[in-house]
Computed example of a mutant assay.
Amino acid sequence: MGKDVTTKNDEKKLLKKKYTEGLFERYIATKDVEIRNEIFKEFMYIPEILSKKYINKGVDYEDIFQVASLGLIYAIERYDPSKGYEFSSFATPTILGEIKKYFRDKEWIIKVPRRIQELSRKINMSKDHLQHKLMRPPTIRDIAEYLEVSEEEVIEAMEGSYAYSPTSLDVRISNSKDENDLSLFEVLGMEDQNISEVEDKDLIKNIFAEMDEYDRKIIIDRYYNNKSQSDIASELGVSQMTISRLEKKIIKKLRDRISY
C-alpha cells in the first residue's frame, strides 16, 4: 500500500517535470507570452514563499511580492533546461537577488544612479583596505588607482553617498543650558534674502565679466538654462566627461574668486 502511494507520487512528479520542461521548450522556441504566463502560474509559489520571509522588514508584503514576481519573470527568461538544473533551484537565487537589490535601493533616501551606489560601496570597502596597506588615510588618487576609476568618478560617488542618510531637520539637539531640546531646523540661521540677493548679483556680474566666453557658456547653460552636461557636450562637440572636468575647474575658480 505504502509503495503504491510512493510510486504514484513519483509518477506525478515525473509527469509534472515533463510538463514544465515542455512549457519551457515551447517558450524558448516561440517566446509566446501566454506560455510564459502559464510557467509563471506554475511557479508562483516560489515568490510567495520568499516574500513572506521579509514580512515586518519595514516594507509592505505586496511591494516585496511584486519585486519577487519580477525576479521570477527574469528567471523564466534566463532559464536554459539543457543545463540540467531544476528551475526552482535556478529561480530562487535570482528572486532573492532582486529582493535584496530592492532593499539596497530603499536604503538610499535620495535616489541616485545605481553606478554611483555601487561605486560608493566599493570606495567604503577600499578605504579600510588602503588604510591598513598605506598606514595612513587614503587619498582620492589612492582610491581611484586601487579601483581603476577616475578621480572625478570617486569624487562623484563620495558626494552621492551623502544621499544615503541625510540628517533630518527634525533631529533634536541637546541644549545643556535649557531642559528643552531644540530641533536642527530651529537653530539654523535665516538670511535676509533681499540683502544677500543684491550682493550676490553684483558679485556674480563682476565675476562673469572676467570669465572667457567658453567658461561662461558652460556655467550659464548648466545653472541658468538647466541643461545637462551631455547636452552641453553635444553642442560643443566634446565628451560629457570633458564638460564635467571643466565645470569642476570653473566652480573651483569661482570659489577662489569669491573667497578672495
Rank of each mutant, 00 (worst) to 15 (best):
Y79N: 06
H129G: 00
S239Y: 03
S120Y: 09
K100D: 12
E213W: 07
P47A: 03
P138M: 06
Y27N: 01
I55N: 09
A29H: 02
P81Q: 06
E86S: 07
S259N: 11
E86F: 07
S174E: 11
S244H: 09
P81M: 06
K13C: 08
F43C: 00
F65V: 02
D181M: 09
E179G: 04
R114C: 07
D200L: 13
L23W: 01
I173S: 05
K248W: 02
S259F: 05
D128A: 09
S69M: 06
R104H: 13
Y146C: 01
E34H: 05
I218S: 05
F43Y: 14
V171R: 11
K111E: 12
I49A: 11
P113K: 12
P113C: 12
S161I: 07
V67E: 01
K8D: 13
Q229N: 13
V5D: 06
D60N: 14
D170N: 14
K17E: 14
S176P: 12
G2M: 04
E107M: 14
T7E: 15
L72I: 03
Y162I: 08
I251Q: 02
R114M: 12
E247N: 15
I243P: 01
P113N: 10
E118A: 10
Q229K: 15
A163W: 01
F185N: 15
I35L: 05
I46E: 00
S174F: 10
T94M: 07
S82G: 00
N9M: 14
R115C: 14
E153V: 02
R172I: 02
Y224P: 00
D10W: 05
Y260N: 10
R104D: 14
P113I: 10
Q229T: 09
Q66T: 11
K122Q: 15
G71T: 06
R172K: 13
Y260V: 05
T30W: 03
F40D: 06
L96C: 08
N206F: 13
N206K: 15
D105L: 08
D60G: 05
G58S: 08
R36S: 11
V5Q: 09
A91W: 02
L50F: 05
D192W: 00
S174M: 05
V112A: 01
R222M: 13
K57M: 13
E48F: 08
I140L: 02
A75E: 04
I73Q: 02
N56C: 04
S126I: 03
Y146I: 02
S239W: 02
G160C: 11
I207H: 02
F90D: 04
E38N: 04
E25T: 13
I207Q: 04
G160H: 08
V33E: 15
E98F: 08
L182T: 06
D80Q: 07
R114Y: 10
L96G: 03
S165Y: 03
I155R: 14
Y74T: 11
N9K: 14
P47C: 03
D105P: 00
L50S: 01
D202M: 14
I110G: 00
A29E: 07
T30G: 07
